[in-house]
């Protein structure tokens, strides 16, 4: 089982609903976020393109954060989900520095926090909060090992990319382009 997400940049309107839904689902304090929206404009007037991406932890197969964590707080869960065990985290920040995607933040309570793919929800058979709320339905979540999962189907059908592939992290968030 390898959990992954595919996000359709052609449908995303950058509304940031995923960000608020994550905040309210996961008690992320106002002023912090586990996911965010990036908008990249290319070209000159009037030949223009915009790519809009909802970004978050890539749940890398080869995660630098897990390697750099001195206490083992950052670890892989079943399905390859990268999470932080709060009470094992000493807040040293090594993982924050090592992450090429800037996906982690220091929670005001002293531990490092990040996207969990809403592990508590997927364990109950639900979708991550961001996927479930998205008004454009531009996010797909599922198991890469299951050819019938939404994410596998989208990756078969569409062109896609990952972010900073040259870092060798093998990200599990794919962007449909």
């Amino acid at each position: 089982m390898r959990y992954a997400m595919a996000i359709d940049t052609k449908k995303c309107v950058g509304c940031s609903d995923c960000v608020v839904a994550c905040q309210t689902e996961n008690d992320v304090p106002v002023g912090y976020c586990r996911d965010w929206v990036v908008e990249v404009t290319d070209g000159t007037y009037p030949q223009l393109e915009i790519e809009i991406r909802s970004e978050r932890c890539n749940h890398c197969e080869n995660a630098p954060c897990v390697r750099s964590c001195p206490t083992g707080a950052s670890h892989y869960e079943a399905g390859g989900i990268v999470t932080v065990t709060e009470n094992k985290c000493i807040g040293c920040g090594a993982c924050i520095v090592s992450c090429p995607y800037d996906a982690r933040y220091s929670h005001p309570e002293g531990y490092v926090d990040k996207c969990t793919f809403c592990l508590h929800r997927i364990q109950k058979g639900q979708q991550p909060a961001c996927v479930e709320v998205c008004p454009t339905k531009c996010m797909y979540f599922g198991d890469l090992d299951d050819p019938n999962s939404d994410v596998s189907k989208m990756l078969k059908k569409r062109k896609f990319k990952t972010l900073i592939p040259e870092a060798g992290t093998k990200p599990h968030v794919y962007y449909l382009i």
Binding site: S16, D17, V20, A21, T24, E132, V133, P135
Partner: peptide
Amino acid sequence: TGNDEDPNCNGRLCPRGTG
């Protein structure tokens, strides 16, 4: 969260509704 039966939102609120 949105109500799945609601034709105005089909179970998905917008960021303002979520917020």
